[in-house]
């Protein structure tokens, strides 16, 4: 979910598959895990690299909107919790880049693609965090939406991705709870705090719905990813599930979801709700969101400013290796 619009392959019918591809598909169908050294179709490898890479980038860029409030967190405890949470996100990035490395692409290669604009991260992180309740809303809604997608991905066919997801989901559910805890404090606090909470919900509701990606009818090529079990549910299924779970949580907080059409539909046992503005979504993906420029500038600056630091550590490691070698030669 932090992977949207991942470019995938067209679904290959079974009769067109090579014997290897057929055997591979049988393993996936049987629920076996595919491990890095196993044979896999090139399309599977490429799609996974794009998907895991985009997910990893989202974790890293996702540090920025929340990091924006660390120095302004209102209590020492909130500051400590937020630091721990943002640090978790960076840790998720590490697991995911490592999972991608098992597919033969280095972290540096993926970062180059992020910095040059050739790989994306989730559209949600191009929205600003403007008041403290936004930190609650990000945990509640953004991590909540991410969990909807990531829980099923624990069963994904690629072993390293699945294992990374299992670890990540444990932390994300904690993140979501801490986000909701902030929302409770704000919604049940002073009138000004409640205003902040409502403002945060107003701004984050539709961008959160966009996190699931475009409607199934417009979602190209997800059939192949689903056959490979690197996508488990459709975008619309997950979005519906998210709305169904979130609406009662907003009601408990006494906050209103900014959607006049929102209504319980007894027949489908779910809420009817308005679609987000998809033209806004595609603008954000194209780079025209409120924070795209700042997010990319921050990441590129961190990378470029850090070059001397990384070079220094590498140079020392090389010198130390030479010294160790010289010492062992001298000892012989």
């Amino acid at each position: 979910m932090y992977a949207q619009l991942v470019k995938s392959e067209g679904l290959k019918p079974r009769e067109e598959m090579s014997p290897e591809e057929r055997a591979f598909q049988d393993r996936v169908d049987n629920g076996e895990k595919i491990e890095p050294k196993d044979w896999m179709p090139e399309g599977y490898r490429k799609t996974l690299i794009r998907q895991i890479g985009q997910h990893a980038h989202s974790e890293i860029v996702g540090q920025l909107p929340e990091g924006n409030w660390i120095t302004r967190a209102p209590t020492l405890e909130r500051k400590a919790i937020l630091l721990a949470k943002v640090q978790d996100e960076a840790g998720h990035g590490l697991y995911l880049y490592s999972a991608a490395e098992t597919l033969g692409v280095s972290r540096d290669e993926l970062l180059d693609k992020l910095h040059s604009g050739n790989m994306k991260y989730s559209s949600i992180f191009n929205y600003p965090t403007l008041n403290w309740a936004d930190i609650g809303a990000v945990g509640w809604l953004v991590d909540g939406a991410a969990i909807m997608n990531q829980v099923p991905l624990q069963r994904t066919s690629f072993g390293p991705y699945s294992r990374a997801m299992i670890r990540i989901c444990k932390e994300e559910s904690f993140h979501q709870r801490q986000g909701y805890a902030i929302m409770m404090k704000m919604a049940f606090g002073t009138p000004e705090q409640k205003d902040m909470a409502q403002d945060a919900l107003n701004r984050f509701w539709y961008p959160s719905l966009m996190m699931f990606g475009p409607s199934d009818k417009d979602s190209v090529h997800s059939a192949q990813s689903m056959a490979w079990k690197i996508k488990i549910n459709t975008n619309d299924e997950l979005r519906q599930k998210f709305v169904n779970e979130t609406v009662p949580q907003a009601e408990y907080l006494g906050l209103s979801i900014p959607d006049d059409k929102l209504a319980w539909n007894e027949e489908k046992q779910g809420y009817d709700f308005s679609e987000p503005d998809w033209s806004e979504f595609f603008e954000v993906i194209k780079g025209n969101g409120p924070c795209n420029r700042e997010r990319m500038e921050a990441r590129v600056k961190a990378w470029e400013d850090g070059e001397w630091f990384r070079d220094g550590l590498n140079a020392y490691a090389e010198k130390a290796a030479v010294r160790r070698k010289a010492a062992s030669v001298a000892a012989e």
């Binding site: 120095t71 630091l83 960076a90 921050a298 850090g306 070059e307 630091f309 990384r310």
Partner: peptide, 20 residues
Amino acid sequence: SEWCGHGPVLEEDIALANTA
């Protein structure tokens, strides 16, 4: 903590946040 998200390499981001 001002480094959070702006470190020179991911491992440093994590270490700095942890120190803070």
